[in-house]
Amino acid sequence: MFEFIDENDLSFERKVDRPTLPQNFGISVPEQARTPGRVASSALDLSAGPLSAILDALPQMVRISDPSGRLEYRNKRFYEFTGATSGEIEAEDWKKVVHPGDGEGAWAEWRRCLRTGEEYEARYRVRHHSGEYRWILARANPNYDDKGNIVRWFGTSTDIHEQRRAEEALRISEERLRLALETTALGIWDADLVTGTREWTREARNILGLAPEAPTTRETFLDRVHPEDRTRMEAKFFALQPESILSYQEECRIIRADTGEERWVATSGRTLFNTEGKAIRKLGTIQDITARKEGEVETWRAANYDTLTGLPKSLS
């Protein structure tokens, strides 16, 4: 969060139909603290009463600002997080603990919300007392009087660093998987047995020669399977009792939808169950193995036929 916006640059005449809280929300605001330029930390008197204890007990960093964005209060959690002492990081000094790459964007969004009265939300990095920059989620909501004027902003900042690290690790993992699938030309198919929906990756569609908008139905797949292999594949992959087949692996011929070319594919799958033992999902792969099949034919031919005469070696 950021404080001390140029009050001449803001307008708070906007009328809104919003629920209102008591103007001071049970907080004493000394008259001298409302004077522009006063030290922000002295603006609210929370030294006594249960509200101070409640705010300090929260896991989030809490801040309260006046309509211009000037800081009036921070709870103890902020100082524990940053390692600062009360009054040490106030007003624009707060920007000094924000990561250089994040401050401008978060500050601009805060200024915009102060102008419009919209709820504020931003994610950026703040320097922890350990010296590490940690990601936080900052939010602030305006409080209105009975005339629809903003009288105060209530905000929180939540440490989401571990969540961001987990999200980044997941993103990297998914990117690696995507690259691996593209490199190996491996398609993925996923069938939800509860809802009946199916999903095929782009590579799975490419292998079958299907357009991106082609439906991912049972019939779409079986129509591509060679007629001589269709009965076998249907019995294995579309059994009436999915619980009867836990895993499967088959090779078959397909007829590509776009070119009509005959190709060989290897497809495998596994049935997934819920805690009650009911089949709920089938997940598997499909891969074009035409080159391998052609290689196997050539190897067999070389082993059984004379390369010069073309006659079986048993006759030569």
Rank of each mutant, 00 (worst) to 15 (best):
R38Q: 07
Y124C: 09
L51M: 11
R123D: 09
L315P: 05
H226D: 15
Q241I: 14
D146V: 12
G87K: 10
S130K: 04
I207Y: 00
I289W: 03
D66L: 05
G284V: 03
R263K: 14
G148N: 10
F221H: 06
A257Q: 12
R14E: 13
S65D: 15
A91H: 02
H226Q: 10
E175F: 07
L222K: 13
R230D: 12
H161P: 08
T307F: 08
R63P: 02
D306G: 00
P59C: 00
R34C: 03
A166W: 12
D229T: 09
H161R: 10
N8D: 14
E298Y: 10
T267K: 07
L10H: 01
Q23W: 10
D102W: 00
A53D: 15
R112L: 03
T259K: 11
A169Q: 15
D190I: 04
V225K: 11
L193R: 04
G117W: 09
A303R: 07
G148F: 14
R205L: 05
R125N: 04
K96F: 02
V29C: 06
P227G: 10
N141W: 12
P142W: 14
G103I: 11
R70D: 09
T309P: 00
T183M: 08
E219G: 04
Q163E: 14
Y144R: 08
E80M: 02
S65P: 02
S247A: 12
A185Q: 15
V16Y: 11
I286W: 00
D145Y: 08
T290K: 08
G26T: 07
A43I: 01
W135S: 07
F237K: 09
E121C: 06
T290L: 10
T156F: 07
V265S: 04
D192Q: 00
E276V: 01
S130C: 03
E213D: 15
K147R: 15
V265G: 05
S268W: 11
S157Y: 07
E174D: 10
A140C: 08
Q60A: 12
W135P: 07
A204F: 14
P227C: 11
Q23K: 11
E162W: 10
L283T: 06
A291K: 09
R111N: 04
V62F: 08
E7A: 13
S42T: 13
K15P: 05
L308V: 11
R139W: 01
